[in-house]
């Protein structure tokens, strides 16, 4: 699955922190494209498969707020 974060709202450092926190649950691949940061998520743990995307986005938002 892929999540596209808009750079105007999300901080790259926040995304890196979130991937670090979630590294036990999935494999994350970060790509920067123009105005976006794309995150490919693979190898997701079965238990969190349904919620990992949304929970990850919340985590990134919470981390981003710390930078503002």
């Amino acid at each position: 699955m892929t999540i596209v974060f808009n750079k105007q709202f999300y901080h790259l450092q926040a995304i890196k922190k979130a991937t670090e926190a979630y590294k036990e649950l999935a494999v994350f691949n970060i790509k920067e494209k123009d105005n976006n940061i794309e995150i490919d998520i693979d190898g997701v743990d079965k238990d969190v498969k349904d919620v990992i995307k949304d929970e990850f986005c919340n985590y990134v938002l919470a981390e981003t707020k710390k930078f503002t």
């Binding site: 808009n6 709202f9 999300y10 929970e55 986005c57 919340n58 938002l61 919470a62 981003t64 707020k65």
Partner: peptide
Amino acid sequence: YGAAYVFLDRAYVFL
């Protein structure tokens, strides 16, 4: 950001 942060426990927020 502030308002979104308040809702993190009740909803999934995306900007």
